[in-house]
């Protein structure tokens, strides 16, 4: 299940939906990303995305995770628009029969989101607004992905 939306989401409700009506799930691993504020001097962050392509790329990332691990359910909810420190940005949740694949796939999905989902961050700080540049490590991974397609 993949959603890209402006509105907030309820992590508990999303996790409950993943497991609803099933008895084969042994565990759900989840990651909730938040806007980190105070220490970084960030006052707000605007997430821009590429409607259409974002959903396609998130779906491709899910397919890749399912290829690597036997997963029962995957949920990715990603917000866009202007967000304040402390607000939720993203939920990644993975349901599997055993915890090993749930933890591993959740980390994999979260890492890949950072380099392959078309989102860009405009940060508002004390010195005005500026676009966040990709980190060197992310840059290398994005380049590798671009060559593959």
């Amino acid at each position: 299940m993949i959603r890209v939306q402006r509105e907030d989401f309820d992590p508990a409700a999303e996790l409950a939906k993943l497991a609803a009506g099933r008895t084969d799930i042994g565990g759900i691993a989840s990651f909730v990303g938040l806007v980190r504020g105070a220490a970084d001097g960030v006052r707000a962050m605007t997430l821009e995305h590429y409607p259409g392509m974002t959903e396609r790329q998130l779906a491709a990332i899910e397919v890749e995770a399912r290829r690597r691990w036997p997963l029962l359910e995957v949920a990715i909810v990603h917000r866009h628009g202007r967000l304040l420190p402390g607000e939720r940005i993203v939920l990644v949740a993975v349901a599997a029969a055993h915890r090993g694949e749930a933890f591993a796939a959740c980390e994999f999905l979260t890492d890949w989101l950072k380099t392959q989902a078309p989102f860009w961050k405009l940060e508002e700080g004390a010195d005005g607004a500026h676009w966040i540049e990709a980190r060197a490590a992310d840059e290398g991974r994005a380049g590798r992905w671009a060559k593959r397609s």
Partner: peptide
């Protein structure tokens, strides 16, 4: 055709 900077889905810990 779309043009953009490298994606920054997270600056992350």
């Amino acid at each position: 055709v779309a043009f953009f900077p490298p994606v920054t889905g997270g600056r992350g810990p």
